[in-house]
């Protein structure tokens, strides 16, 4: 089983985010010999600003693994370059849409440009895209296509900030390169202090959400969020083996990506890379 991880460390003076991102290749992809088409990318900025993206490449597209990586990376890098993210998100009710749309647009242009360079159609780089900016005061999310972004609040409530966008049929969704995709983007802001953030690709929908309503499934997230808060060096290995375990695999044969982040209390200075 192929495992692909995208983890980077951005040194931050006082970091309170603990993050783990894991992608595993689905059994159907192994059967067909296609690569893992999910990608994730994240970064921690000063002042505990956490930026992350997850993209799920279309199974039918020839270069969607590349498209997913490019889209998630470009979205995160675009947001990294945005100044005063927290205060702009927190103080002005409308800026979050502009900020998030900037990231989506940048990802789309990067994908289109890459398609041109490679001499292929943009649809061969098709992927979904979920983007999150989380700070101790506010969480903003954008999503095109399926998968979802979930947070846990100080009161242990689970909130789905986005829900999977599929058509009548479960195998239909919108991709970043789909015509008019930016207009369909779900853009949300939540004001408050999150304890946890999770982004995941549609492969986990059956386990993580009460479908088709998109409500977060507490028996799934509660243990995972506890785990990430307490996790040590073996967290990544443990998450990978969880995603590869028979109880997960018997419910899905798709690529799976699960990005988990915990915002630790001030007293817990932590290593963000686990």
């Amino acid at each position: 089983m192929g495992v692909e991880k995208t983890q980077i460390v951005i040194p931050a003076r006082s970091n309170r985010w603990k993050v783990s991102a894991t992608s595993v290749c689905g059994s159907s992809h192994e059967k067909l010999g296609t690569p893992c088409q999910d990608a994730s990318f994240w970064s921690i900025q000063e002042n505990d600003i956490f930026i992350a993206a997850v993209a799920d490449g279309a199974g039918s597209a020839t270069h969607s693994d590349m498209g997913a990586q490019l889209a998630s990376r470009t979205a995160v890098e675009t947001l990294q370059a945005e100044p005063d993210l927290e205060s702009r998100l927190h103080n002005n009710p409308n800026t979050f849409k502009t900020i998030l749309t900037t990231a989506l647009k940048a990802a789309l242009s990067a994908v289109k440009k890459e398609a041109k360079t490679q001499g292929i159609k943009p649809r061969e780089l098709a992927s979904t895209l979920i983007v999150v900016i989380a700070t101790p005061q506010v969480v903003a999310t954008a999503q095109i296509g399926d998968g979802a972004a979930i947070i846990q609040t100080q009161d242990n409530d689970l909130i789905a900030l986005t829900t999977p966008d599929s058509g009548e049929y479960i195998n239909q969704t919108t991709f970043l390169i789909s015509p008019g995709a930016l207009k369909t983007a779900q853009l949300h802001i939540w004001h408050g202090k999150p304890t946890h953030v999770a982004l995941f690709s549609d492969g986990l929908q059956m386990l993580a959400l009460q479908m088709p309503f998109g409500k977060p499934h507490a028996p799934f997230f509660t243990p995972l969020f506890k785990f990430i808060s307490a996790a040590g060096e073996t967290a990544s290995v443990q998450l990978t083996s969880f995603l590869q375990s028979p109880r997960v695999k018997e419910r899905t044969d798709d690529d799976l990506t699960l990005l988990l982040a915990a915002l630790m209390d001030d007293t817990h200075e932590t290593e963000n890379q686990i």
Binding site: A58, G59, S60, D146, G167, N171, D254
Partner: peptide, 12 residues
């Protein structure tokens, strides 16, 4: 193939 697909709507 259809039941494993997540491919817009076109399944080869």
């Amino acid at each position: 193939r259809v039941s494993h697909s997540k491919v817009e709507e076109q399944v080869d």
